[in-house]
Design a protein around this nucleic acid. Structure first.
Ligand SMILES: NC(=O)c1ccc[n+]([C@@H]2O[C@H](COP(=O)([O-])OP(=O)(O)OC[C@H]3O[C@@H](n4cnc5c(N)ncnc54)[C@H](O)[C@@H]3O)[C@@H](O)[C@H]2O)c1
Ligand SMILES: NC(=O)c1ccc[n+]([C@@H]2O[C@H](COP(=O)([O-])OP(=O)(O)OC[C@H]3O[C@@H](n4cnc5c(N)ncnc54)[C@H](O)[C@@H]3O)[C@@H](O)[C@H]2O)c1
Lengths: 251, 251
DNA sequence: CCATCTTTGTGCACGCGTTCACAAAGACAT
DNA sequence: ATGTCTTTGTGAACGCGTGCACAAAGATGG
């Protein structure tokens, strides 16, 4: 979890809890892997193990989507893949723009994981005139001057910000003014956006600081522990303290 | 955000709630900015606005650390920076290794935000022999064969995984066996680790899928809405649905 | 057609996190 | 010293999320 959250009052979109929505992509990934191995059905227990969650939680999550399982058998993999994809809005194509084609922006542009899930890099935008026209990952970088036109021509509603922190708010405002209503922010700043615009942030530095906190705590306990059977114990499938505050969280 | 959490039963480290820990870096960032502008004190209201959170939440968060404020005045910026840094374990230096120096790994190596917070890139590791010896961000890439030795020689306890998904679990196991107890995972896989090892994950694809879900919902509501005064309303400092399931969450 | 066995779907209780609202603490002016 | 005004620190209520535990559903075999 690059994230910690700023709960919007009681936004339970269409009855599906936010926590459930955040896990659907996880289930989808596990299901896709099963689908590729031509596994026809899967039980909540098996799928939960693959996704790293509690099986009761998984069943409850699925119950918000409908009754898609068969008692005594499990869930049909293909059918579930389709249902979750539809629920997440992945049956349609989402054009995305990336603003700020530096180290990170270029890596994102080269990332294959985009296209594999209905997301298409529609354009790369940067303020540096030296970059304009140069292809990155096969797509020519365009100048910030044309930002509004690019957004509108491509019908983009999702924008990724990978500029320095100082430019992020301004870029954000231009994106929103041009029609973008969802933003994934990699710059370490709080973005102020109008109501109706969703912001999620990924902050590497915050993640490391959270790890450092727990690391320090572990070191402290170890020093305080006279008993040696606490640190290197079982081999449980433990997944660490959550980031309920997602590693990535809403700005 | 890379988020959704797997709550460890009742792990409230040293009395500080996990949700609070996840926000401390946020406060620290805002405080550092104030410190650079030589602002001596700040009220909970002002700081909360800068960090994008509720002021009551901020005060409660700080109350877990101690009574560091002065009623009628606010908080001493420098003092608070120190206290939070100490609490997060940032007063010491944390050597970090990055495994998998591809597009993303190289971007991370070049990222200046590391060093600015007590994190030092101790080594870059990759399995590709062609990369061995080549400098990235001024640091020569080392081969995976020497992973264990590198970890031990540098006393590394925090590792970053930026390899393809297929290699992540194996790399993870080697890191853990060599002594790493905190992992930041960028590969889209669930990592299985022994108890006592913390994993946080950042998954860009999950973040985009969560945004797509809300985007689809917005589009649907808009179509259903006959009333035009719902979409482009106020200009509140709204921060979107949280990713309580942090953008980055524990694996 | 009946019995058995597997697995779903969910009622329920519990705990964490958020937020309101206010008493107490202290700065500052007179 | 006393009063006023600002702002902290926290008690308490509420809501969301989690996970247990089980009844009901349905598959499967005889
Ligand atoms: N590199 C990483 O691994 C990493 C990790 C976490 C967060 N970040 C954050 O991501 C952002 C980008 O990091 P980076 O390492 O790629 O930086 P970078 O300096 O390599 O790239 C920034 C790019 O943004 C462009 N830019 C600047 N102002 C702009 C504007 N107003 N409009 C459009 N483009 C503009 C620059 O021309 C440059 O190409 C930073 O905010 C950084 O803090 C980076
Ligand atoms: N590029 C992105 O923006 C992005 C975004 C989100 C997630 N990711 C994920 O991050 C990971 C890396 O992405 P990338 O784009 O940098 O990929 P990449 O192919 O450019 O780089 C992967 C690197 O890992 C190295 N590697 C492979 N197996 C290894 C092993 N066993 N030990 C050590 N090194 C090994 C390869 O030699 C290569 O240099 C992937 O899992 C990807 O899904 C990338």
């Amino acid at each position: 979890m690059a994230t910690g959250r700023t709960h919007r009052p009681a936004t339970r979109s269409r009855g599906i809890p936010e926590a459930t929505v955040a896990r659907l992509p996880l289930y989808l990934r596990a299901l896709t892997a099963l689908s590729e191995r031509s596994v026809p059905t899967v039980s909540s227990e098996e799928l939960a193990a693959a996704a790293g969650v509690n099986s009761a939680k998984l069943r409850k999550d699925f119950s918000y989507l409908g009754s898609y399982g068969t008692r005594g058998v499990g869930y049909d993999v293909e059918y579930l893949v389709y249902q979750i994809s539809r629920e997440l809005g992945l049956t349609q194509d989402w054009p995305v723009v990336i603003v700020g084609i530096g180290n990170l922006g270029a890596a994102l542009a080269n990332y294959g994981g985009f296209a594999s899930r209905g997301f298409r890099v529609a354009a790369l935008i940067d303020a540096d005139p030296a970059l304009a026209g140069k292809p990155v990952a096969g797509i020519p970088v365009q100048h910030t001057d044309d930002l509004e036109k690019i957004i509108q021509d491509n019908g983009v509603s999702i924008g990724v910000i990978a500029t320095p922190a100082g430019a992020a708010q301004q870029v954000c405002e231009r994106l929103v003014a041009a029609g973008v209503t969802s933003i994934l922010n990699f710059a370490p700043t709080v973005l102020n956006v109008p109501e109706g615009v969703d912001v999620r942030k990924v902050d590497l530095s915050i993640e490391l600081q959270i790890l450092a906190f727990h690391e320090q705590r572990k070191a402290g306990e170890e020093a305080a522990d006279a008993v040696p059977a606490a640190a290197t114990s079982g081999d449980t499938t433990d997944q660490g303290p959550d980031g309920d505050v997602p590693a990535v969280m809403p700005a």
